[in-house]
């Protein structure tokens, strides 16, 4: 009994029974509502955009430090692999190494940096576009019902909103907003994301929409403009955009048709696309920029060279 009493005494929750702060509650609820309405009504010219930029810039070191500390551990799942898997990978890597060594020998660039961004340089020369290399340092929670990530390059690296973000596998998303040293990227998986897509085999165009947030892996829905057309399983989809006009540059690989569903009611077909990019393991990405961009870091040039 005595022990219980001491325990209760140590708990200093109710030293003075405070009046429930109803006025504070109402004030804060109204403040939240004001923020929401302000942000919604003003749209892109929202007075909160500069605040977002300042907060993002201030918070970037926290995200950068955490993700740097975490990065060695994200490789842990790859330790649990079978021997034959690893053998195959070794032979693949040896072949890749040999070709890369040839590249390194011809380039004056520091070999370490090249190794880090090797896949990106390959992507740049495949796509024929200049890329600003960047790393993903923060992921948005699905509780916020959107799929966004933060990268560690911003306006001082030459980034601007609506630029296309890719990695070595394909299209990642587009830049939503930038601060001097970070940028927020809307992934193509986001339910609000719409990408113009073109089926590589038939050159038919349509719209790719994010499938939503849950589901075992990221999926995209493709709706073709020509509703009579049925996409074939295994067809590849690339972006259908135009340089300078839209957020997505054309010809970036997006994914492959995995399933086709017929919608009887709408007399059209809905194709499910498996993206080439593994969104759960995003790390090094590249932002497509104009070749003459001035940047605080080395650009990956369209010919795969760095400088």
């Amino acid at each position: 009994m005595a022990a219980r009493f001491v325990g209760e005494k140590r708990w200093r929750g109710f030293e003075q029974r405070q009046q429930p702060p109803r006025s504070t509650l109402i004030a804060l609820v109204l403040a939240s509502a004001t923020l929401m309405v302000l942000d919604q009504q003003t749209g892109d010219s929202s007075p909160l955009e500069p605040v977002r930029s300042v907060v993002g810039e201030a918070f970037a070191p926290v995200e950068a430090v955490t993700s740097t500390a975490v990065r060695p551990f994200t490789a842990v799942p790859t330790w649990f692999r079978s021997k034959s898997d690893l053998r195959r990978e070794i032979s693949d890597l040896e072949a890749e190494n040999a070709s890369l060594r040839a590249t390194v020998a011809t380039s004056a660039f520091d070999a370490n940096t090249l190794a880090e961004f090797e896949s990106l340089t390959a992507a740049a020369s495949d796509l024929g576009r200049a890329l600003v290399p960047a790393r993903v340092i923060g992921h948005g929670a699905a509780q916020s019902f959107s799929r966004t990530v933060t990268i560690d390059a911003g306006s001082s690296a030459g980034l601007a909103p609506d630029m296309t973000v890719v990695n070595s596998d394909g299209l990642v998303g587009r830049v939503l907003r930038v601060t001097p040293n970070t940028a927020t990227v809307l992934l193509i998986l986001d339910p609000e994301s719409v990408v113009g897509g073109r089926i590589g085999e038939s050159m038919e165009v349509g719209f790719l929409k994010g499938h939503g947030i849950l589901g075992r892996e990221g999926r995209l829905d493709l709706e073709l403009l020509d509703q009579k057309l049925v996409p074939a399983k295994g067809d590849t989809v690339v972006t259908w955009g135009s340089d300078g006009a839209g957020p997505y540059v054309p010809g970036i690989p997006v994914g492959q048709v995995s399933d086709v569903f017929a919608s009887v009611r709408e007399q059209s077909h809905r194709a499910v696309i498996v993206p080439f990019v593994n969104f759960s393991a995003l790390d090094v990405v590249g932002v497509v920029v104009a070749a003459d961009t001035t940047s605080d870091r080395a650009l990956v040039r369209a010919d795969g060279k760095i400088g």
Partner: peptide
């Protein structure tokens, strides 16, 4: 909540997590 609304990569209307 305001921090969660503003820190990137948040892209929803500000004030929602605050509320």
């Amino acid at each position: 909540g305001v921090l969660m609304d503003l820190v990137p990569p948040a892209d929803h209307l500000a004030g929602r997590w605050a509320l």
